[in-house]
C-alpha cells in the first residue's frame, strides 16, 4: 500500500504538486493522467524520492519513505521510463541484473533471475542475454527496461510513460503483456501517461492531475459516469464516454447465454473491441470463447449498447 499524505513540491515558490493525498491499494494498477506540466511525473518521482517533497509524507506499507537513504529506497522500488534508459555499454543480461548486483545477490541467484525474466518477457535467453541494447528492436528494448525494473522483485513498480516511444501495434502488445505480468507477479504498479486510451486499458484506478492538484481519483467507470470537474470531462472526451465504459470491461463480463454464428472472440477481449468487430462484420452477436477455446456464450450488440449507456 502506498499512502501519499499531503505531498507538495514547490520550485521557486510555485507548487508543481499541491497537497496531494491519495492511497494506492496493493497489487493494483494505478494510472496518473494529466496534461504536460500537471505535476504527474513529479508526483511519481516523489514516491522513490528522485524528487524530494517540500511538504507531506509518503508511506510504503506504513513505513515513511524517508526512513532510509534514497538509493536504498530506489533499489526496493522498480522504475521504468520512457525511452527505456538501458545502459548502452552493458549487455541485456547485465542491464537486467543492475539492481540485484547493487544488492549483492550471489551470482547463481542473479543468473536464475535474469533467465526467468527474459523468458517471462518472451526473449530467448540464448539469443538475447549477451546482446547489447542497440542490437534490439524498440519493443525488445522496452521489455528489457521493464524486466530490469522488476529484477529485484520489487513490490512497487513505477512507470513513467513507459510505452510512449513505441509504435501503436507494439504498444498494444506491451500493454497487454504488462497486465499479464502484473497479474502473475502481483506487483503494485503506478504508471504515468497522457494517453487516456492507455489509462482506461490498464487502470484499476485513475488519478487525474491538473495544475499540480489531484482533481479526481477513482475507478475508470467513476470517471466516466461522474467526472469531478470540467477538466476531467474534457480529458475523457464527451463523445468517447460510451466507448470508454466499454473499454473497461471484457467480453467475458458481458457474456449472455446462447450461441451465435461467426468467429469466436476471446473472453479477455475488451467490450469495445467486440463492439467494433460486431459493427464491422454486420452481425448482431458473436460467440465468446474462454482462454482454453471452449465456447461460453455470446455477446450481443444490444447487450453492449445497454452497457455503454449512461448508468441511471
Amino acid at each position: 500500500m502506498i499512502e501519499i499524505d499531503g505531498i507538495t513540491k514547490r520550485y521557486d515558490g510555485t507548487a508543481v504538486v499541491d497537497n496531494v493525498t491519495m492511497t494506492i491499494e496493493p497489487r493494483t494498477v494505478t494510472v496518473i493522467v494529466g496534461t504536460s506540466g500537471s505535476g504527474k511525473t513529479t508526483l511519481l518521482r516523489m514516491i522513490n524520492r528522485l524528487v524530494e517533497p517540500s511538504a507531506g509524507a509518503i508511506r510504503l506499507d506504513g513505513e515513511d519513505n524517508r526512513s532510509m537513504p534514497g538509493f536504498e529506497l530506489r533499489r526496493r522500488i522498480g522504475y521504468a521510463i520512457q525511452g527505456h534508459g538501458l545502459f548502452p555499454h552493458r549487455t541485456v543480461a547485465q542491464n537486467i541484473a543492475t539492481v540485484p548486483v547493487l544488492l549483492d545477490w550471489d551470482k547463481a541467484r542473479i543468473d536464475a533471475k535474469v533467465a526467468e525474466l527474459l523468458a517471462l518477457f518472451q526473449l530467448d535467453p540464448a539469443i538475447f542475454a549477451a546482446r547489447f541494447p542497440h542490437e534490439l528492436s524498440g519493443g525488445q528494448q522496452q521489455r528489457v527496461g521493464v524486466a530490469r525494473a522488476l529484477a529485484a522483485e520489487p513490490k512497487v513498480l513505477l512507470m513513467d510513460e513507459p510505452f510512449g516511444a513505441l509504435d501503436p501495434i507494439i504498444r498494444a502488445k506491451a500493454q497487454a503483456d504488462l497486465l499479464d505480468i502484473q497479474k502473475l507477479l502481483k506487483t503494485t504498479i503506478v504508471l504515468v501517461t497522457h494517453d487516456m486510451d492507455e489509462a482506461f486499458h490498464l487502470a484499476d484506478k485513475i488519478a487525474v492531475m491538473d495544475k499540480g492538484e489531484l482533481v479526481q481519483y477513482g475507478t475508470p467507470a467513476e470517471l466516466v459516469t461522474n467526472p469531478a470537474t470540467e477538466f476531467v470531462q474534457t480529458l475523457i472526451g464527451a463523445s468517447e464516454r460510451p466507448f470508454r465504459l466499454l473499454s473497461i470491461e471484457t467480453a467475458g463480463q458481458a457474456v449472455e447465454p446462447g450461441t451465435a454464428d461467426g468467429k469466436p472472440v476471446g473472453a479477455a477481449t475488451s467490450q469495445r473491441d467486440v463492439l467494433s468487430e460486431l459493427l464491422w462484420t454486420g452481425r448482431d452477436a458473436l460467440p465468446v470463447a474462454a482462454a482454453d477455446g471452449t465456447l461460453i456464450g455470446k455477446v450481443t450488440l444490444e447487450g453492449l449498447a445497454r452497457r455503454a449507456a449512461r448508468p441511471q
Binding site: 528522485l50 530506489r74 533499489r75 526496493r76 525511452g83
Partner: peptide, 25 residues
C-alpha cells in the same frame, strides 16, 4: 538523460553512477 535517470532510479549511489555508467560511457 534517460540513461542517467535510469541509473539513479535503479538506486546507484553517486559514486556507482560515476564508475559504472558515466565514465564507461
Amino acid at each position: 538523460p534517460s540513461v542517467m535517470e535510469a541509473a539513479r532510479g535503479a538506486g546507484m549511489t553517486d559514486r556507482q553512477r560515476l564508475f559504472k555508467v558515466e565514465l564507461p560511457l
